[in-house]
Amino acid sequence: MNFKKKFQGVLAETFELPKEILLDLPRVTIIGNQHLYVQNHRGIVEYTDKIIRISVSGGELIVKGDKLIIRNVFSEEIFIEGVIDRLNYEI
C-alpha cells in the first residue's frame, strides 16, 4: 500500500498530473476568511455554526469560525460561507 502511494506520487510528479486526482486528496480553496471550497470530500462529520468537520481521505478537515453556513453541498464539493478563523487537519 505504501509502495503504491509512493509510486502514484512519483507518477504525478513526472507527468505533471494534478496530485489531488491521483492521490485522492482534497482540494481546498479559501477566499479571504469568507469563502471556503472543499473538493473531493467524504461527507460532513459535524456541523454547527461555530465548527464544521469535513471528512476527507485519510482524516478530517476542521473549519472553525463564526456564522458558518453551508451554501451548497454536492457529493464531491462543499461550499462554506461565514467568518473563518482556523483551518485544521487531523490525520
Binding site: 461527507g43 456541523y47 458558518l68 453551508i70 453541498v73 454536492f74 457529493s75
Partner: peptide
C-alpha cells in the same frame, strides 16, 4: 443524526442549499 442525514442526502443526489444552524435546529 443531522450530519448523517445531510451526508445521506448528498449521496442520494438530493440537493441541499443554505444549511445554517439556528439554535439546535439546522435550517436548509
Amino acid at each position: 443524526g443531522t450530519e448523517r442525514l445531510i451526508n445521506l442526502a448528498i449521496n442520494r443526489g438530493i440537493f441541499l442549499r443554505d444549511i445554517r444552524r439556528y439554535k439546535k435546529k439546522a435550517l436548509m
